[in-house]
Design a protein around this nucleic acid. Structure first.
Lengths: 226, 226
DNA sequence: AGCCTATTAAATGTCTGACATTTTGGCAAG
DNA sequence: CTTGCCAAAATGTCAGACATTTAATAGGCT
């Protein structure tokens, strides 16, 4: 539904879906809380524009991740954020991680390795998610940790572009491994570089940039365009 | 109220505050949405621990910013986030800002300059807020833009530590000016460095690190401790 | 004694109908 | 043409009854 458009009134929604007004109001309140719609007494309910959405609300992330075909513009925005933020997070993790954090990252990485084939793609995605989220947690910062929710829609979008060739999976796995190694050895700068390499690979898999030989140029181009 | 503690039942709250059950339920639903409390049918309502709070929810930011004495631990967490994130945001802004963005930052900066005295501290704070938020917006990324909400509690906390000496204000102003200049001239790396300098000044004003001569050492110490 | 089950109490969740409040637009008088 | 008032339409609020879920407790069986 286009931004600015109006929704039917509550009672009509009740009739249409054959539910009580309570359920309608709960649902609408939930949407309003995530900034998708705006309600004013006497005026009605209308759709907000994307820039007003609360992208950081966990509900929103969960919702986006469950969509079949999320808005490509949104996927790009979220990925652009990850591309600028995640190297910093990896750097922090390399400074702050304790044994338990490293164990969590390793466990996720092992899971990725054992599911690195087309048949087990769904499991692989879950481990991928766990890997990145473990890094956010390892930063030991409350704010960054919460931001881990944003990973789900971004990584789930990978399922759409399922050109998971063996070579691509191997390459991705190797890059993830280098992040793990840098964090385990407490080397922030190496972790930062390695995280950026992982994201360049992800950008290709998401279809955000074309695969070209000099990946550094690709990254610079993207950074300037977004 | 301590984490894990239970709240009174709805009907008791109705009596206590002499309001309808609807209002109580609305308020509790709002708290639940921000992760402050957890409700389960038959079990009751209990307080969640800080790590479960949705710090990124705009409601939460607004709430925190209005508090007289916000939890120092929380202020430190949010500032640590800003310290790692804001240089990146400034860098993005230097790449992506258009004329309107730069105008907004300049306007906020002018406001900061004309209110740089103890009498006008509240106005100065507002302009300070506007300055940083304008930079987040200038990144032209939906996610970073939303994160601007976090600024308010962090900057409002400055009012508590109101040791705004003339020298400190002058220094702070000069550092802000260098960020503006770097963004205006489209120099990402300079903007990144300048933003970090601003935050070092803010860390001192917030009482997070003591003022010492070699500010680089101060920053490194903080980064490792958080 | 120990364990499993049925009952009961306590809390949140849901439904329903009526009423209150806010917003908007139209109509009429000045 | 403007101003003020009224009516319609929408969301917001109230009150009370009822449903569902959870946890504790008492009782019977092995």
């Amino acid at each position: 539904m286009a931004a600015g458009g109006g929704l039917p009134r509550e009672l009509d929604l009740c009739q249409h879906f054959d539910v009580s007004r309570n359920q309608v109001r709960n649902a609408l309140a939930s949407l309003a809380a995530t900034g998708l719609i705006e309600r004013t007494a006497g005026r009605g309910t209308r759709v907000c524009q994307i820039s007003d959405w609360h992208l950081l609300d966990p509900l929103m992330s969960e919702w986006l991740a469950g969509l079949e075909a999320p808005d490509p513009k949104l996927v790009r925005e979220i990925f652009a954020f990850r591309y600028s933020a995640e190297p910093v997070v990896a750097s922090l993790a390399a400074s702050a991680a304790v044994a338990a954090d490293i164990a969590a990252i390793e466990q996720a990485f092992d899971g990725m390795r054992t599911t690195a084939n087309a048949q087990q793609a769904p499991h692989h995605i879950e481990y991928d998610l766990a890997f990145h989220e473990a890094i956010y947690r390892a930063s030991h910062n409350l704010v960054w940790r919460q931001m881990g929710h944003l990973l789900r829609p971004s990584i789930m979008a990978l399922i759409q572009h399922s050109q998971h060739s063996v070579a691509a999976l191997d390459d991705s796995l190797a890059r993830h491994g280098r992040v793990l190694a840098a964090i385990r050895e407490g080397q922030p700068q190496a972790a930062e570089r390695a995280a950026r390499e992982v994201l360049k690979r992800t950008a290709i898999d998401l279809g955000i940039v074309a695969e070209i030989s000099a990946s550094r140029d690709a990254a610079r181009t993207m950074r300037n365009r977004i």
